[in-house]
Computed example of a mutant assay.
Amino acid sequence: METSEHIDYQRIEKAIEYLKTNFKQQPSLEEIASHVHLSPFHFQRIFKEWAGVSPKQFLQYLSIEYAKGLLKKQKGNLAHAAYETGLSGTSRLHDLFIKIEGMTPGEFKNGGQQLHINYSYAESPFGTLLVASTTKGICYMAFSNDSDHAFIELKQLFPNANYRQLTDQLQQNALQIFYTDWSSLSTVKLHLKGTDFQIKVWETLLSLPTGGLATYADIANEIRRPQANRAVGTAVGRNPVAFLIPCHRVIKSNGEPGQYHWGAARKSAMIGWEAAKSSIHMEEQ
């Protein structure tokens, strides 16, 4: 059964798709609300509860000019991007991701034959998540409106693993990333299946601060492979851990969000939501 939170996000996602298509016309609150079949008052209330800002303010965070401004501020210096963009408070979250372990060659080749994987489903501000963990850390996290399909995708990564539907502490720690108060967040460990190059790219993504953005070229420069933009793009696209490894913060050099494995509208929603949360945090400081 769908939760009210999930239904609200579906409406927000539809509204964001409308805003992305029509932002040059600066649609009114009434026009946006009508598109998602809600009254302006009800839509404004739901949207502000979800994003913390009005639809008009959120539209600013989705604009290409806003993205270009962020990229210009932090260009070529991802390691210090948090301080350059004034987001040092929220970037503390990423300091907690201190452990990324690649799977052994044996685990990589045999499809996880010796792995025991716990998995569970959870709600997030962006829809339902499937979260999976080994004894060493989170190995998979994906958005999906179809729980069966999400599990099939997980099994394709580790076809020979032993699975158990169980919520464990590793998963609970990881899901705290969606909270606005991260002071109690425990260290989040990741246990990933990937090549050395892919893991290097994913590790670099963790240096991107909440509310910050980078281009594929930025990531390539950061790992000292400036000619590897395309390979970086492929590695970003194969990220197996949604949101925790923030591949949604990688955009095109022209400021456009680009594609996303779990949906372009969801990517825009994440970027706008994080920008709104970061803006609120900065105002409170």
Rank of each mutant, 00 (worst) to 15 (best):
D196V: 03
D196K: 10
Q198K: 09
K200M: 09
K200A: 13
K200C: 07
K200I: 01
V201K: 06
V201F: 04
V201A: 07
T204R: 09
T204W: 03
L205Q: 03
L205W: 06
L206E: 01
S207N: 11
S207P: 00
L208I: 15
T210I: 15
T210E: 14
G211Y: 11
G212R: 01
L213R: 12
L213N: 09
L213Y: 14
L213V: 09
T215L: 07
T215Q: 09
T215D: 10
A217T: 14
A217H: 13
A217P: 01
D218R: 03
D218N: 11
D218M: 03
D218L: 03
D218P: 05
I219R: 05
A220H: 08
N221T: 01
E222G: 00
E222W: 03
E222P: 00
E222H: 14
R225A: 15
R225K: 13
Q227M: 11
Q227H: 14
A228K: 06
N229C: 06
N229S: 12
R230D: 12
R230S: 13
V232R: 10
V232S: 13
V232C: 11
G233S: 13
G233Q: 12
A235L: 06
A235Q: 00
V236M: 03
R238V: 00
R238K: 13
N239F: 01
P240S: 09
V241T: 09
V241A: 07
F243Q: 07
L244D: 06
L244T: 04
L244R: 05
I245T: 01
C247P: 00
R249L: 05
I251D: 11
K252W: 05
N254P: 04
G255N: 02
G255V: 02
E256T: 11
P257V: 02
G258F: 00
G258P: 00
Q259P: 00
Q259K: 11
Y260H: 13
H261E: 12
G263C: 10
G263R: 07
A264C: 04
A264R: 08
A265V: 04
